[in-house]
């Protein structure tokens, strides 16, 4: 731990400082969107979106390297594919009631396959592990600005539409009956989720996105009594998980993504076990 703090304060260690800044600032979006994903129960949809993001990254690399549009960063492809996936998945889950899970499962796999095929077609060698498992230490100043932009967007939308989104997450049908365009709000929520996922992919990678999106919110849900409390707690837990994960991975020379997820996962399991135990004791004493 001491060497982590020393490394953090070392002026030459720019990458570590950016990593900590990104982790802290992006926790705002992760906490807020994670709360919506957990309460609206769409973590499965979020998983599908994250795998479609890989398709966009592959396509982005192809466009940049093979077609020669050098300004087209893979990140642009990722954002584009995430938004498209969010809209398609949103429409599928709104209108294709019966086969929803099959369609979403198919999109999940197709997104992944598209990415791999584009990477095959693109000349040169790419290390895809940083996309799959994330590498927070590869982040740049530009990523930091992206995080700030996303934070402002997510916080503004969820503050302005707080009551409407609460109603849509709690009971979409009823909200619709009250004249709220609940389908549109649902898709808006999925679009914000997909942007957050693009960012998360940079931090923990495609495979573990769902974990960092849902675990802080799920832990927060054990203590929170209102939606905004759950958001604030989720943000705090997300900061806690990423900081300790980074510190631990630095000291033990482990990959940052999996370390963060391990800490989040263990905390989640411990908290739900403790709350189950507490309820049992309460029940017995009654």
């Amino acid at each position: 731990m001491i060497d982590f703090i020393r490394a953090f304060s070392d002026p030459d260690n720019v990458f570590l400082r950016i990593a900590i800044y990104v982790a802290t600032l992006s926790s705002i979006s992760f906490g807020i969107i994670g709360t919506y994903v957990v309460t609206r129960r769409i973590s499965y949809l979020a998983g599908a979106i994250s795998h479609c993001v890989f398709g966009g990254i592959g396509a982005g690399l192809y466009v940049q390297k093979k077609i020669g549009m050098t300004w087209f960063e893979p990140m642009y492809g990722a954002i584009l594919s995430a938004i498209i996936a969010a809209v398609i998945i949103g429409l599928v889950s709104l209108y294709a009631k019966q086969r929803e899970d099959t369609v979403i499962g198919a999109l999940w796999a197709i997104g992944m396959a598209t990415g791999l095929i584009f990477i095959d077609l693109t000349p040169g060698y790419f290390d895809i592990t940083s996309y799959l498992f994330g590498d927070i230490l590869l982040l740049s100043i530009r990523d930091l600005w992206m995080v700030v932009f996303l934070d402002v967007l997510v916080a503004a939308v969820s503050l302005y539409f707080y009551h409407v989104l609460l109603a849509v997450c709690f009971d979409q049908e009823f909200a619709g009956l009250r004249g709220v365009r609940s389908g549109a709000f649902y898709i808006l929520l999925l679009c914000l989720t997909s942007l957050t996922i693009v960012l998360l992919v940079r931090v923990v990678g495609i495979v573990m996105v769902i974990a960092l999106l849902t675990l802080p919110a799920a832990v927060a849900g054990q203590f929170a009594r209102r939606l905004w409390q759950m958001m604030l707690l989720a943000i705090m837990f997300c900061v806690l998980f990423t900081w300790t994960g980074l510190a631990l991975s630095y000291s033990l020379k482990l990959s940052s993504g999996p370390t963060i997820i391990m800490i989040a996962g263990i905390t989640y399991i411990v908290t739900i076990s403790l709350s189950k135990l507490r309820k049992k004791i309460q029940f017995k004493s009654e």
Partner: peptide, 16 residues
């Protein structure tokens, strides 16, 4: 488990 208070639920009826 949805984190919401009774008042918040009842207010949803006012949305439209």
């Amino acid at each position: 488990q949805f984190p919401v208070t009774v008042m918040e639920v009842v207010l949803m009826g006012r949305l439209g």
